[in-house]
Design a protein around this nucleic acid. Sequence first.
DNA 1: ATGAAAGCGCTAACAA
DNA 2: TTGTTAGCGCTTTCAT
Lengths: 347, 347
Amino acid sequence: MSDRVGPPTIRDVARRAGVSTATVSRVLAGIGNPKVETAGAVLAAVEALGYRPSAVARSLRMRRTNTFGLIVTDIQNPFFPELVQAADDAARTVGYSILLGSAAFDEHRAVHYLDLMADRRVDGMIVASSQVAEESWRWLVESPVPVVVVNAEPASVPITVITSDNRGGMRTVAEHLIGLGHRRMAYIRGLEGITADQPRVEGFRAACRDAGIPADGLIELRGDAQFAGGERAVSELLAAGTDVTAIACHNDITAIGALRALRSARIRVPADISVVGCDDIAAASWVVPALTTIAQQKAEMGRMAVERLLAMLDVGDGGIAPETIRIPMVLQVRESTGPARVGGVGS
Amino acid sequence: MSDRVGPPTIRDVARRAGVSTATVSRVLAGIGNPKVETAGAVLAAVEALGYRPSAVARSLRMRRTNTFGLIVTDIQNPFFPELVQAADDAARTVGYSILLGSAAFDEHRAVHYLDLMADRRVDGMIVASSQVAEESWRWLVESPVPVVVVNAEPASVPITVITSDNRGGMRTVAEHLIGLGHRRMAYIRGLEGITADQPRVEGFRAACRDAGIPADGLIELRGDAQFAGGERAVSELLAAGTDVTAIACHNDITAIGALRALRSARIRVPADISVVGCDDIAAASWVVPALTTIAQQKAEMGRMAVERLLAMLDVGDGGIAPETIRIPMVLQVRESTGPARVGGVGS
DNA sequence: ATGAAAGCGCTAACAA
DNA sequence: TTGTTAGCGCTTTCAT
């Protein structure tokens, strides 16, 4: 009747089974050829005691935690949960778990998580956050732990990156619109400096150029990658009396904001103006009209990030050359885009 | 030039500073009155080596991980990220971190995470998942680690629960509707067996009863707590030719589905029919018309769960009696509810 | 096939 | 004020 404090340890099991801790360890790890009776005794003791090996002690001894750190910009952004889920799925199947950090748009928090995960001795890190300063990126590449960056492209730092093909994706969007006859369009950009902003708008511009659309056929506005930014940009657009037949947005949330502003102005979508988003979050198919958008393959990205980390662990980091992997985006045509109207708004 | 493998340890620091590891530990912990020069030397060595104490080793030694486990039903459900964020915030400020597990509606996964977190020796657990079998609940209460349940109410198990006042919330919703003159209403329920389903519908019924609304003034339909369920339920309602002036839904996603079905049927909201949801997810204010809903105070719940865990840790679990804390819900009146129309639909 | 013992990196008595 | 030492619970040589 010892006053055992805390969960049973391997010693408790060993004692009860009348063997050494080494034997318990081996039996549980399935190493060696234990005599059936020994194995039986061990297993019985484990069962009786409800023994669960301490991952903490094991981590210390093994010098590996079987944990990957995952830092996201903001878990409340509907883009991330799917990524997180996919990464977790992939990790789980190979015995890893994910330690999550949501930077909540705060650079300091991002750094905090970087430290935290270093302290926790995670075996690898996935950084899906653009809230990371150049300085931190350097620190990351130099650190011995494998790192995969998702949806951000740190300037001038050799590191493995998994990202959507933002440029190509927005080009596809533009082509879709142009194919529908649109020749006067607006593009609502994301927050200034956000990683994907530049490539997306460039892709859009490129397609316009290729289609021979004159420079003033594309008007660019600044949003904030949030609902409010989309609303505001459209209000400004309308206030300025600018006449476009389509609006492409940096992301779905922006587009949904745009949709709402348009509706308030009694402009019909897509009859008067077409709207298209980017990301394909769940809400994109909930709104009316359902949003045409170009989808990021979030699950695919999460899966790949983990795979990559695993590969680096195998080869012993550094064995794998940093590489930028671009995952294609896929167009989801729904209800918010249609043929360009010919006359003025309301015609 | 030793081929140091892995990050520097406390011994490296001690060696470099010419002191014992104990001293390093003390200086870093701010314990005792180290001579300034000693402290200086230690700090310098720490700096030079880029030393970060191993949380793994510390956890083993201290028998505490400074980690709370958090299991959610499904991180992709917009309800949870805010809860997670709040819990993480609260935990972070007191030096804790959150190990997240998303059960993804899978009972086996929920169990998997339970085990995982036990193995990791988390100092406490927050279980915000209804995917947990009775058997597991028992296991949880018996386990020595403090547990707080969020938004679920395990039958007949004494455990600390933090939940929204679902009954009171839906009562408020009904009263809002009744106050607007509605007397023939529909209620779309959640998935069968889901924890909040029963109290919510009961709250609604109670208010109807109190207002003297006849039994056939409230028609109940079964949804699935998802978009599709809301759509389907409304279609059925319309197909049956049932004439109601308001529809209350188990949650926002259902309500958004309902909104869409109504729109397809060219029924105006709120002119013809009012719609109200529950939860107040971000998308509730994005849709058109913006959804009137009764908000769960998710951040509050996350915060409280952590506080409670901390308290249990202090007092030494068991010192605090299991208690069910009901957090009030707050009505958000937006655009989807209005006065009951008097004539038939379309009048 | 099994046991004894060392040690992963840290903290906390206890000594000095 | 600082150092010595003994573990925390595990895995893994090296013996036996």
